[in-house]
Design a protein around this nucleic acid. Structure first.
Lengths: 244, 244
DNA sequence: AATGGTTATTCTCATAATGAGAATATTGTG
DNA sequence: CACAATATTCTCATTATGAGAATAACCATT
């Protein structure tokens, strides 16, 4: 070990270039099912396979900026989405072309529009989480970790409110939890819980214009409260057998 | 926006090189206080200031490998430490020399040895968390996020057991929580909680050789159980006023 | 307009988990 | 040996959760 190996003295230009990309796990709910934004690759490597949207960072932009830009390029969406860093991946062989370190981001939003037509990728589409092809590179892993992060965040943050419109009913909010977690929740207990956590939601004094499509009373409308953390958290039902 | 901006067709060599480093937030408990490993920079930029240990990744090593290596170079520690990725930072101006993206890692271990003498940095030392100088670059922020992550992980994982010896007493384990969280905990309730969470600890049937230094009975010895998650979690006492 | 199915909201009750304080027993020190 | 210190267990009030049911408002259809 000599001095040149350390930050202070080490010369990075002595090594092959490292490229940095951002990959975005963009989630939305459509027709009651969780969807992720995927692009079909037009070129090698992995041509024809689906991958997470992403691309190289530019010299003058920060990581989150790059993620927002990539997402905007695919969806035409104004940069209002909630975005959050997930993790970074840098195994030497993960991209056959060169050394690539990818920083993954998670994005959520209500009813994201269809991907912009005519973008560079061969195709781009929202795909149901439960009907996915095998992804290119190590994107299966990145998506898996993104999903788990999203599921965990629902527990202790008001993240679910970013999946619904500005005003929403408790039932709609419950639908987000049920969709993302993939489990049915007890309507009465969920209702009690949401209203008892300080700052989770605040009433608007209004109700829906009409009852549900198949009947039922009008539901009260709420908006997101100012809490950044849910206290106490809204825990997922315990799985009977935890792996390990 | 044209095709060249996308992963499929974009040529990263057209841009200035990006260097990737790992920075390690290494935590240990010494003399009842939480300490972090810092190095004093010997060269510009920020010469003379303290920084997190870290350095450039090598062409053939994965990110976690690089973090373990950097830590080993500073502490002489065998690669047995628990290591975990934190986050990545890539703001354009964060290092004045060139574009650097840093991936930060968190490391924990019991009684880590003194930093190896004669390493490349001007100096390296364990520093008490509550008596820190201002750090170089954006390392204050990285350290802050690492601390918060460690505090959060104590809640729902058996991480605390990696801060103590292989066998330990409940009181020692409580000491870890109190040190990292910085709050006193109710001894009786903590005891009940630790023993009631399945798989957190398992008894060894043995006790300490003698009572505490100032009296008291011998304490039973436990070792870490096989749980990877604590259920239900061991929550921090609620802060009265949450920021925001 | 009356009927019946649907759904939002509230309530009840049993059980689990937590916070606070105290009791009990064991040990080292003076 | 008396006393202070500490590990461990207990008690009791409060809060949070899970399950089921009751209540009432609303839709579509008769």
């Amino acid at each position: 070990m000599d001095d040149s190996e350390f930050l202070a003295g080490y010369d990075p230009r002595a090594f092959p270039a490292v490229a940095v990309t951002v990959d975005v796990v963009a989630l939305t709910i459509r027709e009651g099912a969780l969807h992720v934004l995927l692009v079909e690759r037009g070129e090698q490597p992995h041509a024809g396979r689906w991958a997470l949207p992403g691309g190289f960072i530019r010299p003058d932009e920060d990581l989150p900026e790059a993620a927002v830009r990539e997402l905007a390029e695919e969806t035409g969406l104004a940069p209002r989405v909630h975005i959050e860093q997930l993790a970074s991946y840098g195994a030497p062989g993960r991209d056959p072309r060169m050394r690539i370190v990818s920083v993954s981001y998670l994005a959520f939003a209500p009813r994201l529009p269809d991907p912009r037509a005519g973008s560079d990728a061969a195709d781009a589409a929202w795909r149901r989480i439960d009907r996915l092809p095998e992804l290119a590179f190590d994107h299966d892993r990145i998506l898996g970790e993104g999903l788990e992060r999203a599921r965990a965040k629902l527990e202790y943050t008001p993240l679910a409110t970013t999946f619904v419109d500005e005003t929403f009913t408790i039932t709609e909010l419950r639908g987000v939890y049920e969709t993302v977690w993939g489990v049915p929740l007890h309507a009465g207990n969920f209702h009690r819980k949401v209203l008892s956590v300080p700052g989770f939601v605040e009433g608007t004094g209004q109700t829906t214009e009409s009852g549900g499509a198949r009947g039922g009373p009008r539901a009260r409308l709420y908006r997101a409260g100012d809490a950044r953390l849910l206290h106490p958290a809204l825990l997922r039902p315990a799985r009977e057998e935890e792996a390990g």
